[in-house]
Design a binder for these strands. Structure first.
Lengths: 143, 143
DNA sequence: CCTACATCCTCCAGTGGCTATAGGAGCAAG
DNA sequence: CTTGCTCCTATAGCCACTGGAGGATGTAGG
């Protein structure tokens, strides 16, 4: 009765690509599902839910290892959610920092682009700011 | 007379790590410098400037191939800076988009963390929102 | 001159999180 | 029965580095 679906259907249902699903199985994030006679993976509702959970977590920028922790917490509902809370809070801090850093970056790029007089490279603000770090206002930014 | 420096000094002077300098040489971003009798790389002021240019560009999030283009533009000062301008503009758009996307992410993480009553996992907003994509307000976000 | 020790060299493997390709097997419809 | 789709495994590639092994060279002190 259990309406098992093939990997393609699971992919469609969850938005996780087929090779990615196999990859998640390989790294132990998704348990190896039962196979059909013809050796094909069959997934059920629970697997799909797990994949959705993973996808959403990845979209929020959690690392695989953090997702591993979050999943194991989900499996034991009676436990305190302090750890989940801590992971989410840490990610929130990261995101806030990245926003700050990207805003500095945005400001500098804007300065570069606005300063471009569309003339020759020799007087181009874009090139000049890149070349001369002293003309750069901010000090620490990453991707 | 040319005050050539060893790779370690070049690294110190530019903030680019030693293995990264060698890597840039390997991929053709930095020209192979002359060597001493003992086979050690010696860099001059121009090389250091180039490394600084590269580092700064990387900090602003430009890809290696874009930096390749920017460097080749710098080498030919008489040319129009339209291409440099276009690269910077494209990056600016990317950065703006990323900021928007991270703000959506920030909002959702905040909702998760605020909703956490510090009780059991079974009633934890953090886990619940991750599990149920329907509870998610936004639709498209990346790292 | 000899000994430590820092710095340098090359080569190769690993990181994260997938993504793509090759080469084949199974399955459903016409 | 054939066409064409989906599936399987295994392996390699992506980006931009980073680290380690194992050995050569340079330098400062005794």
């Amino acid at each position: 009765m259990s309406h098992g679906m093939a990997i393609g259907k699971a992919s469609e249902a969850t938005g996780v690509k087929v090779p990615t699903i196999r990859y998640y199985e390989q790294i132990g994030l998704l348990p190896p599902p039962p196979r059909t006679e013809g050796n094909r993976r069959t997934y059920d509702r629970k697997d799909a839910d797990r994949l959705t959970f993973i996808r959403h977590s990845r979209e929020l920028g959690f690392e695989i290892d953090q997702i591993r922790t979050l999943l194991s917490l989900q499996d034991r509902p009676g436990q305190s959610c302090g750890e989940a809370d801590a992971i989410a809070k840490a990610r929130l801090v990261e995101v806030k920092e990245k926003i700050t850093s990207l805003k500095a970056l945005e400001a500098e790029l804007e300065r570069m682009v606005e300063g471009c007089s569309h003339g020759r490279v020799e007087s181009c603000q874009v090139i000049e700011i890149l070349a001369d770090h002293g003309k750069c206002k901010h000090h620490q930014h990453d991707t």
